[in-house]
Design a protein around this nucleic acid. Sequence first.
DNA 1: TTTTAAATGATAGCAATACTATCATAAATA
DNA 2: TATTTATGATAGTATTGCTATCATTTAAAA
Lengths: 233, 233
Amino acid sequence: MELQLQIKMNPALFVRDPESTELGRNIIRDGIKMIHEIGFEDFTFKKLANQVGTTEASIYRYFENKHRLLTYITTWFWTWLEYQLIFHTNNIKEPAEKINIIIKLLTFQAADQFILEHIDKNVLHQIVISEGDKSYLTKHVTEDNKAMLFKPYKDLCHRIAEVFLEYKPGFPFPHSLGSTVIETAHHQLYFKDHLPRLTDFGGVKSSKPLADFLHHLIFSALDSFKKGKAKGS
Amino acid sequence: MELQLQIKMNPALFVRDPESTELGRNIIRDGIKMIHEIGFEDFTFKKLANQVGTTEASIYRYFENKHRLLTYITTWFWTWLEYQLIFHTNNIKEPAEKINIIIKLLTFQAADQFILEHIDKNVLHQIVISEGDKSYLTKHVTEDNKAMLFKPYKDLCHRIAEVFLEYKPGFPFPHSLGSTVIETAHHQLYFKDHLPRLTDFGGVKSSKPLADFLHHLIFSALDSFKKGKAKGS
DNA sequence: TTTTAAATGATAGCAATACTATCATAAATA
DNA sequence: TATTTATGATAGTATTGCTATCATTTAAAA
């Protein structure tokens, strides 16, 4: 059986649905490739048009601007990651085990059970690490947020928060711990490769030490919480 | 006594030292103001020139481009924050108390003992929260890092790491915890204001719940560590 | 199969951005 | 007073970030 998954994206993200045509899928595929190669700042629709073998105008028929395309692909990633979480934690009873799966997913150590022909997920992960924050670090966050553009990120965060609460009912910071863990996973990977002195894993190739760090961070935060007491120490 | 502090900046950050002239200081002052008002993406040297009452060309005599100006001001902030840390923890014996001061500083709850006439530190803090990450999330990080542009950030992180180690010798992730805490302080403040569902402090004005969260995160991570055992749980 | 609609290509154009260069003048320093 | 240094004024250029028009190809509906 070959499993073909289609992630339904928020229509507010695009002008014309890129999944509906060959050209649209090429724009996504080469867009991911190109943003990864030259970085979001140097990336332009003109360059992308050349790569895809189409015109600038045609790309604008799919995406309002390059920022929307970035939000599209990062959002795609969040949706995919939430699906991974649901899939991998299915039938698992122990919340502690679920947390371990979350850590594996965030550090990209879990096997993916389905293939998406035109999307290179490792490259996509790199983009989310290096450029992902830029999708919401803008003056139009509030507007974008109202258009529900960040819902997949919030859904993922909420789902993680629920697992934390399942493990430790009454824990007062499940969402903040959730977003912190997601962000930290990315930042620490970025720092490891580019600013290693900000981490303790400089020079290490494996993402295991990062997983250990996240593991320690999460479980110590949850385990040390005693009901009726928000502060540690 | 009026204390006038001059932060010596890495000359690689500028073409001509903006602290050396009136115009330079105006560029910094209005630059901070303007980046805060319209956001880094929409900010241009032409607009800044208009605001300052000078020409585009003159601004280019001080900074290579707007990205360098951003790095200049965020770096200034890190240097200032490290100084604050040194000042506020001076003569304090207990590492636990030092950690509490770090939390206060990161959540901007500590009083500043000196004035810098042309720099609005609250606005600067907002910029570091909203735009700061963009100074190193580029394709030229490695180059910039070699030019030591991020040294102040790394110094601050290292100093925090030292306090963590002082509190808990042998703790295996002092730098990662340091950078995580710095980043988390900023992200959670940003989320609180713009994407509140990613936090547990939505609607709360005070930064006290964030301070509580950071407090819990740090102390649980440090306290739960037992020698010879890297993992929690 | 025809007709009609939808998607793409080709081309043009325009205001703004991100610079670089030149020269004159004003201000500070030797 | 001579001379360096800083700024202002102005111009120019390639690229970016779009929008618009019209012809053509492709796909869907009649």
